[in-house]
């Protein structure tokens, strides 16, 4: 236990996540003091994840199924390192690239070109690496001369295209996908799917969240089901998808 075996790329051990939600949101000092004096500062505990464990090896492609509020996004955020779990731990080997809400890290006043450097730095790339890959990123994004225009003048599709191009320029060991297979227009969507498929063929580990069972079946070889924060099923993708369909029909 606790030792990462050679081909294990991701190990999630007994991860639980608790949120302390205030019954009414208090986010200024004035409200806080008033509520404190009136003794109305009540917190409500809410477990978004409860004791979730699984292990992925190199090349495993895991589909994460579950209804809204099942804890899928929380799990992805914990794996990406954005959230720290209340209990348990996550051990990952190698570079994790999260393709979540592409372009969320852009500065709207900055031009596309400047944002390539900024967003690249956020993702942990070095300056030399970005210099080297700059042309490739611009070419893939198909932004052309728009690359020197501030991002605030971009359409949402253009932003997503640029975000996708920057995030996928590295070859990650672990890729986190949150239904981003619909980037931009039909033409770019095909291109981005092709790019993702080529990454998959290189044997990277993938975590894929989707509501579409078809997509999960097409992309993944393993799957888990989350229900109200608990892991209720895991195993081969076909088996788990079947369980999921049955559960859906029951309710």
């Amino acid at each position: 236990m606790g030792i990462v075996m050679k081909n294990e790329t991701l190990k999630v051990e007994n991860v639980s996540m608790r949120f302390n939600l205030m019954e009414k949101k208090v986010d200024d000092l004035k409200d806080y003091v008033i509520k404190f004096i009136k003794r109305e500062l009540r917190y409500q505990e809410f477990w978004a994840l409860r004791d979730v464990s699984f292990t992925l090896g190199q090349g495993d492609r895991l589909g994460i199924l579950g209804l809204n509020g099942a804890g899928k996004s929380t799990l992805l955020k914990i794996i990406a390192g954005v959230l720290k779990p209340t209990e348990g731990k996550v051990t990952a080997r190698g570079k994790i690239v999260p393709l979540l809400e592409l372009g969320a890290g852009f500065d709207s006043q900055y031009t596309g070109a400047e944002n390539i450097y900024l967003y690249g730095a956020v993702l942990g790339y070095s300056r030399d690496f970005i210099n080297e890959k700059y042309d490739e990123i611009v070419k893939f994004s198909e932004l052309g001369d728009f690359i020197n225009v501030p991002v605030k003048n971009y359409s949402s599709g253009m932003k997503a295209r640029l975000g996708f191009s920057i995030a996928t320029i590295v070859e990650p060991e672990i890729l986190i996908l949150d239904e981003v297979l619909s980037v931009g227009d039909a033409k770019f969507r095909k291109k981005s799917e092709k790019k993702i498929m080529s990454m998959l063929d290189k044997g990277i580990t993938v975590l894929f969240v989707s509501h579409s069972i078809d997509q999960v079946l097409r992309i993944c070889d393993k799957a888990i089901i989350l229900d109200k924060g608990k892991l209720v099923a895991q195993g081969k993708v076909k088996k788990v998808c079947k369980i999921y369909e049955e559960r859906m029909n029951e309710s």
Binding site: K77, A80, G81, V82, P98, L100, E101, A104, G105, V122, L123
Partner: peptide
Amino acid sequence: SGMIKKVYV
């Protein structure tokens, strides 16, 4: 906050 919520830095 947009950045903090999505990418670890």
